[in-house]
Design a protein around this nucleic acid. Structure first.
Length: 667
RNA sequence: GCCGGGUUAGCUCAGCUGGUAGAGCAACCGCCUUGUAAGCGGUAGGUCGUCGGUUCGAGUCCGACACCCGGCACCA
């Protein structure tokens, strides 16, 4: 007689069953409803196949669609496998490699046959159709444990060289499993999976795009053909997701930037932004605001050279570690004669600055500094050039010329924690002012390629960890996380990731603790002991870059900037030409009050004017008809179709707009 | 840099298997004096990304290059 095992359920009850009973059996015993809804099982917290037997006492919870995170992960992983099966059905000879669930769906990387070539978007409808067929066939997904030798032999025999390579390299101790989909298809996979393909909703997924992807993310390895999809529990979720995508597309800063006439990009200066008058107003407002905050926080603003001799970059270490991203310029007078080469290559090399830090150290080095002078906080709106890989450029979010809101704090070791704390406070204020109350803090640890000794890195990482903890910002509410290998080559860094209006995150702010560069560039101060000491250098930025932050602000606000940032704050629009003279008076009065205002006296219907200025996202329209002109009032209409307008005396309207237009630090 | 897809009027886009370009909006002109997201009519506007090739003939086919888009890698 076999010993029964005890299965504890979430409601506290315990069932005694034969060893080898599956969660599916138990779900069925509880009720047919649960059996039908069951997708997988949590056995002692671990998500497992619903059909995988339990051999010992365990805690069991049945995973249903209500356990949404786990259910989505399962479903997406299964969609990926169905995608792989469908592709191999349609395109025999295509090799399978790897296909995980992602945040909103799944992908699978394939090695197509050479004559077939990479997949294109035109292939997707047929593949989707085949996926639906596989789903409707309701093929059972069965787990089997194989040996490494079995796996390698099987994959080699079936022409799956990528899978065979992988099976070869999986860790020793791991249990190696395959999942069969019916009789005719299988993939090596850790699982877990649903009981059968029919558990998927054939109308809750969509293949979205194709792309190349390196095998094992390594550019020296072959490029595979990746197919992306989005997958959900049901059609309603899918539709909601597709609507969200459309919403995000509407906020695209490139589209809004053109509509609002903020900036443009063109091939002749690719990777650099042409700021138009409207866009540059946003820039100037943002810059002026932050400058006031920095002044108040004890920073001193500087301006340093764009071009410096290559020897300087050698000394700072950039020449060795960063040169491939630098624009190098010969210090030479170009030839102008027809038959003469433009450059003879005789001049010394100079480079456009990719960072501001060396120049700030050079300022620090001027004159003798005492320990009493520290901390010294040097700030610069530093225009940097970085020769980024062309494929990386993206609108104004990733460019080759950008302006950092950079600053370097030179301090003593005993001041580090306080400086980091002060920085965290300043950054918190700025993010709140800009409308980003939610942000996460992460610590990026030493990368492979780096300066300095391990002891230095140990200390720097520990100092940052400690400083954030003491600043009271290392908790889960700040999304605290450590990221191995993500640090800069000269220092570990704290990264600040903010969350925008539609839930996307953007890495913007940073503070980095550097023991190396000041020493390399010979910076020192005289300590209390009368000896020379090397100061610690904190590299820090709050906005990251002006270009990127403005791009993020455009997407965050969908172009509807708060009044203080809006390029045009108000338009005075007339209904009849009889009101022109009064409208001019109103416009002049608003301008005199410091507001950015335009008059629209065109011979157009008010409907037309409302629509046009609404599309331009002008925050306020001051509508002037005969009535307003007679009564010396204005109809103040805030942006938005459902916005209620208010008729008020001219003076009252001016006073109100003036107050509302103050920057957050001026209120 | 790598894979795939693009580039046609100021903007959004059409143009089948090659036969010398088309719509809507915007612009301009006129009418309408207008009350809260497009009033009506008319006119003008394009070396079809660049360069080269195939062809009697190229927006259309081929090649190179540039830039853009989606990813990959990169983001010090």
């Amino acid at each position: 007689m076999t010993e029964l095992i005890k299965i504890s359920l979430p409601d506290g009850s315990v069932r005694e069953v034969e060893p080898g009973t599956t969660p599916a059996d138990i779900a069925a015993a509880i009720g047919p409803g649960l059996a039908k809804a069951a997708l997988a099982a949590r056995v002692n917290g671990e998500v497992r196949d619903i059909g995988r037997p339990i051999d010992a006492d365990a805690e069991l919870a049945i995973v249903t669609a209500k356990d949404e995170a786990a259910a989505l992960e399962l479903v997406r992983h299964d969609y990926a496998h169905v995608l792989a099966e469908a592709v191999q059905n349609l395109f025999p000879g295509t090799q399978i490699t790897f296909g995980p669930a992602t945040d909103d769906g799944f992908y699978y990387d394939f090695a197509p046959t050479p004559d077939r070539g990479p997949f294109t978007e035109e292939d997707l409808p047929a593949i989707e159709e085949e996926m639906r067929r596989v789903i409707r066939a309701d093929k059972p997904l069965v787990r089997e444990v194989w040996t490494r030798e079995q796996l390698i032999e099987w994959f080699k025999a079936h022409g799956e060289s990528f899978k065979a390579e992988w099976a070869q390299e999986l860790p020793e101790h791991e249990e190696l499993t395959v999942y069969r989909s019916g009789e005719d298809w299988l993939d090596m996979c850790r699982g877990p999976h649903l009981a059968s393909t029919g558990k998927l909703d054939p109308n809750a997924f969509k293949l979205t795009r194709v792309s190349g992807a390196y095998w094992r993310a390594d550019p020296s390895k072959p490029m595979l053909s990746r197919i992306y999809g989005t997958g959900w529990l049901n059609r309603k979720q899918l539709d909601a997701y597709l609507v969200r995508l459309e919403e995000a597309a509407k906020r695209d800063h490139r589209k809004i930037g053109a509509e609002m006439d903020l900036f443009h990009l063109q091939a002749e200066a690719h990777g650099s932004v042409f700021w138009h008058p409207n866009g540059y107003i946003v820039w100037r407002q943002l810059e002026a605001y932050l400058r006031r905050r920095l002044d108040a926080a004890g920073y001193r603003e500087v301006k340093t050279p764009q071009l410096m001799d290559a020897r300087q970059w050698e000394q700072s270490g950039h020449w060795g570690k960063y040169r491939e991203n630098m624009f190098v310029v010969p210090d030479e007078i170009p030839g102008t004669e027809e038959d003469e080469p433009i450059l003879k290559g005789e001049g010394a090399l100079m480079a456009l600055k990719p960072m501001n830090c060396p120049a700030h150290v050079l300022i620090f080095r001027q004159g003798i500094k005492s320990y009493r002078d520290l901390p010294i906080r040097l700030a610069e709106y530093g225009c940097c050039h970085r020769n980024e890989p062309h494929g990386a450029l993206h609108g104004i979010l990733r460019v080759r010329q950008f302006t950092q809101d950079d600053a370097h704090i030179f301090c003593r070791e005993d001041q580090i924690v306080e400086e980091v704390r002060l920085f965290c406070d300043l950054l918190d204020t700025v993010y709140r002012d800009l409308g980003f109350p939610d942000y996460a803090i992460k610590l990026a640890l030493r990368p492979e390629l780096r300066f300095g000794t391990d002891e230095m890195w140990d200390k720097a990482e520990q100092d940052l960890r400690e400083a954030v903890r003491l600043a009271g910002r290392a908790g889960p509410e700040y999304g605290w996380e450590e990221l191995p290998g993500e640090g800069a080559f000269y220092s570990p860094k704290l990264e600040f990731h903010l969350t925008d209006a539609i839930g996307r995150t953007w890495q913007v702010g940073t503070i980095q603790l550097d023991y190396v560069m000041p020493a390399r560039l010979g910076a020192f101060y005289i300590g209390e002991d009368g000896e020379k000491h090397v100061p610690v250098m904190l590299h820090r930025a709050i906005l990251g870059s002006m270009e990127r932050m403005i791009g993020i602000l455009i997407e965050h606000h969908a172009g509807k900037f708060p009044l203080w940032l809006a390029p045009v704050q108000a338009v005075v629009a007339t209904i009849v030409s009889d009101a022109d003279e009064y409208a001019r008076e109103v416009t002049d009065a608003l301008a005199a009050a410091g507001l950015r205002v335009e008059a629209d006296l065109r011979n157009e219907k008010i409907n037309y004017k409302v629509r046009e200025h609404s599309l331009r996202k002008v925050p306020y329209l001051l509508v002037i008809g005969r009535r307003e002109a007679d009564e010396r009032t204005v109809a103040l209409r805030p942006l938005g179709a459902d916005a209620r307008q208010e008729v008020l005396p001219l003076e009252a309207a001016i006073a109100r707009l003036k107050t509302e237009a103050l920057a957050p630090d001026e209120r």
